[in-house]
C-alpha cells in the first residue's frame, strides 16, 4: 500500500469504527441469538452501532446463516451497493463452511467465494459476546494501523 493511501485508510477506518452503521442480512437461524445484541441485555448502541435500513447508508454488512443460490445474487448486489470503507461480517458457521447444510444441493458453502469477508464469527448460532469480540478486533486492527501510520 502506498504511504498516503494507508494514512487515508487509517483516518477513514478510525472514524468508521466509532459509528458503525449495520445493515443486517438476518435470514436464517443464525440471527435468533443476536436479538439481545440489539435489545437492552447487551445493547450494541453503547458502541455507536445502530441498524440502518438500506445498504447505501450502511458501513457493515452482517450476513448470518446459510445463503441459498437465489439469495446470494441479492447479497452480492447489496454488497456492491454499499459505499466504501465497508466491512463484511459473516456470523454463524454456515457462511464459513456451509455448516450443517454442508452437503445440501441449494446452499452455497463458502461466502468468501462471492464477496470479500473481513470477519468470521463462528458458532451455530453465535453468542452475542462473539459479535462484540468481532467489533473489538476491528477496533484493535484500526488502532494498530493508526500506530503504524503515525510512527512513519
Amino acid at each position: 500500500m502506498v504511504e498516503t493511501e494507508k494514512k487515508v485508510m487509517a483516518r477513514k477506518l478510525g472514524r468508521l469504527v466509532r459509528a458503525v452503521w449495520i445493515f443486517n442480512w438476518f435470514n436464517s437461524c443464525g440471527c435468533t441469538e443476536l436479538l439481545p445484541v440489539v435489545s437492552s441485555r447487551y445493547d450494541m448502541e453503547r458502541f455507536g452501532l445502530i441498524i440502518v435500513d438500506n445498504p447505501k447508508h450502511a458501513d457493515c454488512l452482517i450476513i448470518t446463516g446459510y445463503q441459498t443460490i437465489k439469495s446470494i445474487k441479492r447479497v452480492v448486489r447489496i454488497y456492491n451497493q454499499m459505499p466504501d470503507p465497508k466491512v463484511v461480517m459473516a456470523l454463524g458457521s454456515c457462511p464459513i463452511t456451509g455448516g450443517m447444510y454442508w452437503d445440501s444441493y441449494n446452499t452455497i458453502k463458502r461466502l468468501s467465494d462471492y464477496i470479500p469477508v473481513h470477519m468470521y464469527v463462528p458458532g451455530c448460532p453465535p453468542r452475542p459476546e462473539a459479535v462484540f469480540q468481532a467489533v473489538g478486533l476491528l477496533v484493535e486492527h484500526v488502532r494498530k494501523l493508526k500506530e503504524e501510520v503515525s510512527r512513519k
Binding site: 438500506n54 445498504p55 445474487k73 441479492r74 447479497v75 448486489r77 456492491n80 459505499p83
Partner: peptide, 17 residues
C-alpha cells in the same frame, strides 16, 4: 469520489434489479 458505472449507482430495490 465514488465508483461510477458499477453496481453501486443502481437504485436500491431490496437487492433486486
Amino acid at each position: 469520489s465514488y465508483k461510477k458505472e458499477t453496481e453501486q449507482v443502481k437504485p436500491f430495490f431490496a437487492g433486486n434489479v
